[in-house]
Simulated scan of single mutants.
Amino acid sequence: MTALGFLYPGHSGEDDYPRIEQLLGSDIRVDLVHTDMAEDVLRVDALRALGSPERLADGMERLRLSGAETVVWACTSGSFVHGWDGAQDQVRSLAMMAGMPASSTSFAFVHAAREIGVRRVAVGTTYPEEVAALFTDFLRAGGLEVVATRSSGIVTAAEAGGWGEEEVLTLARSADVADAEAVLLPDTALRTVAHLGLLEKSLSKPVLTANQVTVWEALRLADRRVNAPELGTLFTREPIVQA
């Protein structure tokens, strides 16, 4: 049994995680601990506070009891708002608290893109433009070329969590451009796992979504590879060997 740990802020799209657990198979367990959200607003200062050491430490104390072997901070915006270096410091601090390998959803996107061998990406975000720009900056710092960005201007995770298949598909299509080798949907509040097959069929290219890459990242840290076609290209492709 491989036990994967996740720190997830608030309550929006968290039901993606038991869905993923079911698709992965019986020897993988997904343990989710909710961290505190003092304010549900997609504003830079609030997002920086969301991933504060105090909040992560409180969540880690509860997650440690689960027996998790790896831990991922399951909040894209709560990591990339610190910039590449700040997000690395955040992950290092989390690993020290946890005593186990750690990462965040922001780094998961960069690692997942490398895994499937794509460099040019389009980004479809629920975020306001200011927050979306910080995510594209983060991706570029990770070596990806962002060829298009779509901002939806949503200001709360709760609103993103209320989106269904039609809204998610519209966002992905509006973000996509011909030059993009993959489309990224970065909000962990957005429920996307049930729509991955439709998204990739509609766009005819890989689609990487926040909760999908978050669980893949936890598996990567645990040195596990799982073939799960329902979870998209990321869970079916052979890894790319980096030169």
Rank of each mutant, 00 (worst) to 15 (best):
L199W: 10
E130D: 14
A218G: 15
T209C: 15
G232V: 02
T192G: 12
V147E: 05
L234M: 04
A148W: 01
S174P: 00
L199S: 07
I116W: 08
T236F: 00
A157L: 05
G164L: 11
L171M: 15
R120A: 15
H195Y: 14
G161Y: 00
V146H: 08
G142L: 08
V123I: 15
G161N: 04
F235L: 00
A132W: 03
T156V: 01
R225C: 05
V155Q: 05
E129T: 12
P128L: 07
A141I: 04
A158H: 09
A141M: 09
L184W: 03
A194L: 11
L196H: 03
T125Q: 00
D187W: 03
L199C: 12
N227T: 15
A194F: 10
D187V: 02
L190I: 11
P206K: 13
H195L: 10
E159D: 14
E130G: 01
I154P: 00
G161C: 07
G117Q: 08
V168A: 12
A222G: 07
A178T: 15
A222P: 06
H195R: 09
R140P: 04
V146A: 10
L190E: 03
V146G: 02
V215G: 01
A228K: 02
S151I: 01
T136S: 12
A189Q: 09
S204F: 10
V121S: 06
E129L: 13
